[in-house]
Write a protein that binds this DNA or RNA. Structure first.
Lengths: 343, 343
DNA sequence: TGTTAGCACTCAAAAGTAATGAGTGCTAAC
DNA sequence: GTTAGCACTCATTACTTTTGAGTGCTAACA
């Protein structure tokens, strides 16, 4: 059987209608809302064909049709026309994001915020991962007799520092320790440094430092490990209650929130998505998200891929608009954190 | 009318039963479960009295009784015996918290985690507020031609730093600017510094620095402002679905999540609670939390009050156990971050 | 005088029943 | 190939009945 023009037209109409209302679409109501010059009976025949081809399903015999995952996939890949964002929305985004220009963390947070507001979905964003990023700067600074601050600056990603309680020390030994650490680890990637036998570097070689090193090195390692963690921002989860299929179904709602609360798992899923603007639909996701769709995009800092952001919501989301929003926001962030050549 | 012994006993039994099951408690079932040597009819008479006195209510004529807010208040203040935590739970807490010893942020996060696990409620914790904390250390560090790191260490609370993009600069001018900032602001409280006319300090006086200062000072101010924000950790919100009164009532659940998602509001509520272990019940809270109870406690760092943590859940929470857990965890944190005198 | 058995009454929740209506599939005529 | 007609399906809604845990009241009892 062939996906001829009329079938496509009907399929598109069913998808559009279902995305809008969330109710199964019947032949009669379709012929009323989208006048395409054919009778409900004809639509019925076509729908029946579309069902056979796997694009539509039936919740039960006497209900209307709803799009299958395959239909959404077709829609996203071929049918929908990515709408250009209206100028005023673009302005609103740029304006909101420029408020925190040059502060990546806040920008990411604001981006997630915007995203959920503009899509009425649950949004998320993750800050840069640092693991393949080279250490650019390591420093130990004296604060008071028993406090020093350890600071680690990776090439991309978040600066980390930590105030450490240590036994009394001399500034000289602190400076020396800082220099040794810098010498040993600077320019290497986070992963590379963590693969080294850091503790041994200090316990065997340098007697004079071992006291201070004993206080500092474990924290250094822990801090490096913590830099591998990605921060997850999430926003707009209450939006789910605006959708009748959730607000009328406690079990679905429960699953949704349980899924969201497993932050590690969610972070994993997001981190491991392909780059670019990616849409995954229903079964294309893992079991716990199988009746959701996700759209993600990544943003760059200085031209390198570093973080992701996106939305999660029901399969009947407004793929066209939502994709545009996400795309625009991620590009906007990337632009903001581009090295300005002319500077 | 008098709250005699028997009435108290019955009231206590009703409360205990209701906290356990969430179902209104009838006279017959009460006489069966708590044998107190009197007939259901007598219990009925007493319950009727208790209702007149405002301790019990009736959802409808033919239903059992449920405790009023007043009853919970009495229970919390006088009737319940704060249970000592079993030794193994204490151990579990100490063990889990000691994993991240000396890293306040992670400790707080873990504490919130533990709290929700042990109480089956939604837990929250806020990291220290820095606004009355004195600035202990300000530094500007060169990273590369167009990047410097600004670091601010307050006496208590979180070290903040930020990588800033700046126009090309000399290390000398950076050092000078750092010294000026240190000279101007060190030892003052955050609030005090923010009250000053910081921008003017630099634009008028020091011509030589104005280029660099123009890049750095606005970020300095923003960073200070950001230090006033408190970070809120939240955990275990899905626990709400285990409670029949929520999992059977979408509207309640919605309100709960909407309330939780308003982070600023929630943070405000928590920050402004009295110190010590505080329980607020139902109407004692603001409108949006009026059918919840909250228990909070604060923890100290170096003996100063700095942060809070607690739980939010239904009014029929296990006040005795939950209070003990919160109290123990908050004390444990305070102990961990106590200055060790003997050091 | 406090306690209790007995009884009529109440009412939410559960179960059963019927009506509604949007939908389908099939067939026969156009 | 298209469409009107019709029998059939089935979730949803409304209505009714039944059930049972509960109450309040009264009268008798210790």
């Amino acid at each position: 059987m062939d996906l001829n023009d009329r079938k496509l037209q009907i399929l598109q109409a069913v998808i559009a209608e279902f995305i809008n209302t969330g109710e199964p679409v019947g032949s009669r109501s379709l012929s009323r809302s989208h006048d395409m010059g054919i009778s409900p009976a004809t639509i019925r025949n076509e729908m029946s064909d579309l069902e056979e081809m796997g694009y539509l399903t039936h919740p039960h015999t006497s209900a209307g049709r709803i799009p299958s995952d395959k239909a959404y996939r077709l829609y996203v890949d071929e049918l929908m026309n990515e709408s250009e964002l209206p100028e005023e929305e673009k302005q609103a985004i740029s304006h909101k994001l420029s408020e925190t220009k040059s502060e990546l963390d806040s920008t990411i947070e604001h981006a997630a915020d915007l995203l959920s507001q503009m899509t009425n979905l649950t949004s998320f964003a993750i800050a840069p991962r640092a693991n393949e990023s080279k250490l650019k700067y390591i420093n130990l600074l004296p604060v008071d007799e028993t406090t020093v601050v350890l600071m680690i600056v990776p090439e991309t990603g978040k600066v980390m520092n930590k105030a450490l309680k240590v036994s009394p020390y001399t500034e000289d030994s602190l400076e020396l320790l800082g220099k040794v650490m810098t010498h040993n680890y600077m320019g290497k990637t986070l992963n590379a440094v963590l693969a080294m036998d850091i503790i041994n570097d200090f316990t065997t070689d340098m007697e004079s430092l071992s006291g201070l090193a004993k206080d500092v090195v474990p924290s250094f390692i822990k801090t490096l490990e913590k830099m591998l963690d990605v921060d997850l921002y999430m926003n707009g989860y209450s939006n789910i209650f605006n959708l009748p299929e959730y607000s009328g179904n406690m079990e679905k709602t429960q699953n949704f929130f349980r899924m969201l609360e497993d932050k590690n798992r969610l972070t994993d899923v997001i981190v491991n998505r392909e780059s670019g603007v990616v849409v995954t639909i229903g079964d294309e996701n893992s079991e716990d998200m199988k009746d959701c769709s996700l759209i993600t995009a990544d943003y760059k800092v200085n031209g390198k891929l570093v973080g992701k952001l996106g939305v999660i919501g029901p399969k009947r989301m407004k793929y066209d608009e939502d994709t545009s929003v996400i795309k625009y926001i991620s590009e906007n962030i990337s632009d903001t954190f581009e090295i300005k050549e002319e500077k």
